[in-house]
């Protein structure tokens, strides 16, 4: 309860601060939306002339992409930990975090949130509606609930993986370039995994389960029954990965060495 109250306190503070720099805010939202549009055009161009890709139609692929955008937007809003090593370890900002009575990872989530990224979710839903219309998808009353569940699951998968990568900084003091690489790998999750070979498919399902952010949960709404099991695994995988990442984080924090001034 306390954490929820604190969350809204930070959100309110965030809004207040952003409103003060209104021009920046509009520029950012605009460039964000532009980025989404470019991405969408890219998808349309790439899949425009291949109507079928490993048994998936163009609109299905667009639908998956739209779905992917929603958990990804949540992830980018709340897990800005790509520069965790430089900012919190090398510069020693974690010192400050650790003297406050809130879980350290949660504090970083609160401090680094970027709510503008949530616009990506709006784009995502628009894309899904567009593709879903083309496909003539039906709609049932359970869909919003499952959608919510799958989106949260997908966000936790993404968050878990990136928290785990951030944790590397607690053990190794060298800088790694794993973070940007992971952003690239993450993109593979938004294409149907059966177009890849079985090794990549295995990796994207069980090792770096990015497939649970895009294709697996989206398959449910596309009515691809052969993937339903995976669709319903989405929240489970999300919770498992995120829990592992929290446990790792907690033991990593104990190894934090601080920055000698």
């Amino acid at each position: 309860m306390f954490y929820i109250a604190i969350f809204f306190q930070y959100v309110a503070q965030y809004m207040k601060t952003r409103m003060q720099y209104r021009a920046d805010l509009f520029v950012e939202i605009f460039s964000d939306l532009l980025f989404q549009a470019v991405n969408l055009i890219f998808i349309l161009v790439v899949f425009g002339h291949t109507n079928l890709l490993g048994g998936w139609t163009r609109d299905e692929i667009i639908f998956i992409y739209g779905f992917f955008l929603v958990p990804y937007a949540l992830f980018s809003s709340f897990f800005n930990i790509w520069n965790f090593n430089e900012r919190y370890i090398v510069k020693g900002e974690l010192d400050r975090i650790l003297t406050r009575p809130i879980h350290s990872l949660f504090q970083i989530v609160l401090e680094r949130m970027e709510l503008e990224s949530l616009f990506g979710a709006v784009t995502g839903i628009a894309v899904m509606i567009y593709a879903g219309n083309n496909l003539g998808l039906g709609f049932s009353w359970t869909d919003p609930f499952l959608f919510f569940l799958f989106v949260i699951g997908g966000m936790l998968v993404y968050g878990g993986i990136f928290v785990l990568i951030a944790c590397i900084s607690f053990w190794a003091d060298a800088r790694t370039s794993i973070m940007p690489m992971m952003y690239n790998i993450g993109n593979y999750g938004r294409y149907p995994v059966d177009i890849y070979n079985s090794v990549i498919r295995f990796v994207l399902t069980w090792v770096l389960p990015f497939a649970f952010v895009g294709v697996y949960p989206a398959s449910y709404f596309l009515g691809k029954e052969e993937w339903f099991l995976y669709s319903f695994l989405t929240p489970v995988i999300g919770i498992v990965f995120f829990s592992i990442s929290i446990v790792t984080w907690n033991s990593g924090v104990k190894r934090y060495r601080g920055a000698g001034n």
């Binding site: 306190q9 400050r96 001034n261």
Partner: peptide, 21 residues
């Protein structure tokens, strides 16, 4: 040597947040 306050927000906002924390 190092600030404990949030860099970008007004002092009283920092205080207000800390009060909640």
């Amino acid at each position: 040597q190092r600030s404990q306050l949030w860099w970008d927000i007004a002092v009283q906002e920092s205080f207000r947040l800390l009060k909640k924390v």
